[in-house]
């Protein structure tokens, strides 16, 4: 999962980015509205955390421009907690609203929720045959046995599971797994896919040559 955090308070930006990275997200950071809008329209994100009062462009302006082309889920995170601000934010195209100060667990839960809703899932647990992928606890179970996956492997599995039945291209996987700061090698995706196959079963992930990978039911 790749997430963009747009926040003009440097300390807060660092903190949010760090906690999301620790949670297995690929996180991009933007320190003002202009940079945020540029990044949001340049790459595909699974979700965007957006502050409202920022230099250069306000969150509302970013949202307005972004919504013309993108459906990326947006979580507004701001100290402006007036009802009017919330209504304006939500009506402007935001998917959720969280006011500062906030709990990081709540931020993470809301992020998961908007990502889940954006792909049309109702629960945080995705069932693929015997396999249960818990996006909240970041665990995978087969029956009663817990499977041990690295965060990257889990993110890859989560991505494929969320797009079950659809071909997920290598570019998509790259963009979802690695943030802008990571100089990823081209075969890193193959390594993670083969690791997943080893742990979950050989036929679990099907390769579509020239297209990408697909996870069947």
């Amino acid at each position: 999962m790749r997430v963009l955090v747009v926040e003009d308070e440097p300390d807060l930006l660092t903190t949010i980015a760090q906690v999301l990275r620790e949670d297995g997200y690929a996180v991009d950071e933007a320190a003002d509205g202009q940079e945020g809008l540029f990044k949001a329209t340049s790459w595909e994100y699974d979700a965007i955390v957006l502050d409202l009062l920022m230099p250069k462009l306000t969150g509302w302006q970013v949202l307005e421009t972004l919504r013309k082309t993108h459906r990326t889920p947006v979580l507004i995170l701001t100290a402006r907690d007036g009802v009017n601000d919330r209504v304006r934010g939500l009506d402007g195209g935001a998917d959720d609203y969280l006011s500062k100060p906030f709990h990081l667990v709540e931020l993470k839960a809301r992020l998961r929720a908007i990502i889940r809703r954006s792909v049309g899932l109702a629960s945080s647990e995705i069932l693929i045959g015997e396999l249960a992928v818990d996006t909240k606890a970041k665990t995978v179970r087969r029956g009663d046995t817990q499977l041990l996956l690295t965060p990257r492997e889990f993110s890859l599995l989560e991505l494929l599971a969320l797009h079950r039945g659809q071909v997920v291209s290598r570019t998509q996987i790259y963009e979802s797994l690695f943030d802008e700061n990571e100089d990823s090698l081209s075969n890193l995706v193959d390594v993670h896919v083969s690791n997943l196959r080893r742990k979950l079963g050989k036929d679990f992930i099907t390769t579509r040559r020239g297209q990408g990978y697909i996870l069947h039911d």
Partner: peptide
């Protein structure tokens, strides 16, 4: 707003550190 922003920094920093 001005009071909430530093408060949010403190709270999220603490939560991150204690995570």
């Amino acid at each position: 707003h001005e009071l909430r922003t530093p408060l949010a920094v403190i709270q999220s920093q603490m939560e991150l550190a204690l995570g």
